[in-house]
Design a protein around this nucleic acid. Structure first.
Lengths: 147, 147
DNA sequence: TTAATTAGTTAAGAGCGCTTATCTATAATC
DNA sequence: GATTATAGATAAGCGCTCTTAACTAATTAA
């Protein structure tokens, strides 16, 4: 097999397996936490950081600011988000994860991490080191494209 | 930093960045295709292969057979799934992706693959080779745990 | 200071996706 | 052949999530 073909095949297979797995993980997380896809998405965005308002958050999620406001409402009631006035601009709201909300997402990420860690257990230390190097490169590159 | 700490940190960071990115990808795919999370999940399961019935499919998705039946109904109407009688057991249904359904999911996987491929472009050939090796190992290991 | 803009909320209504309960049809068991 | 079990579809109903439209309040521009 020629090198470029091997390269794209590898990536495609990886994408297939991991997309499939990711769906299962998300579904499980949604069921366990009782949250919708949009809600998890929203919490994730807040976890990822950066000041963000209601409308902008809705924009990222591809929904109207009305829908975002309602979704946030429910998450505030659930105690996962805190919504307070922005002292700089009293029209705007500051959205932050509560301790509980932060812990919830952290747990989700941790669970996913454990799965990967479990995958690598059977490998030799050399292989594990290689995987760590590769994932480090990919993570850095992904962070850069995150704008 | 001690080696084991570095290992778990690498995995956790990777999980964080890629979970975040995966959510965005799924959301975009859902919006573009006009499908719900459950529907994409369902199509993905069929794409992944293996004979599977309505109830079992629902079980995998964590929903009742009634819900699965309804979801399938909509996908059949959309022309993404074919539902035919199983000649072996006429109570059961054979569920298969139509050409259109298959192409839709393949396109989603392809898009994701392109993103990864784009990430690696900036790397040296040696780094790319390492990433390919690492992903190959991870893909194989993940396939094994997929039962 | 008045007018226009911006951030967010609220209200009404539509549709989706889920549940339980009921139903039909086929298959397996006695 | 009669009973029981299984696969799936259908119905009624509930709650969630989205939309558009109208609203309040704060900020910016004229």
């Amino acid at each position: 097999m020629s090198p470029p073909k091997q390269f794209s095949d590898t990536i495609r297979e990886w994408a297939e397996v991991f997309m499939h797995r990711s769906m299962r993980d998300f579904k499980r997380f949604m069921n366990d936490s009782g949250l919708s896809f949009t809600q998890v998405n929203l919490l994730m965005r807040l976890y990822h950081g950066g000041k963000i308002g209601v409308s902008e958050l809705g924009g990222h999620l591809g929904i109207t600011n009305a829908a975002a406001s309602q979704a946030i409402d429910r998450l505030v009631k659930d105690g996962l988000i805190e919504r307070s006035e922005d002292p700089q601009d009293r029209r705007a709201k500051r959205l932050t994860l509560t301790e509980e909300g932060h812990a919830l997402i952290a747990r989700g990420i941790e669970t996913r991490g454990q799965w990967i860690a479990g995958l690598t257990e059977a490998f030799t230390p050399e292989q594990q080191a290689m995987i760590v190097s590769a994932l480090t490169l990919l993570t850095e590159a992904a962070r850069k494209t995150d704008e």
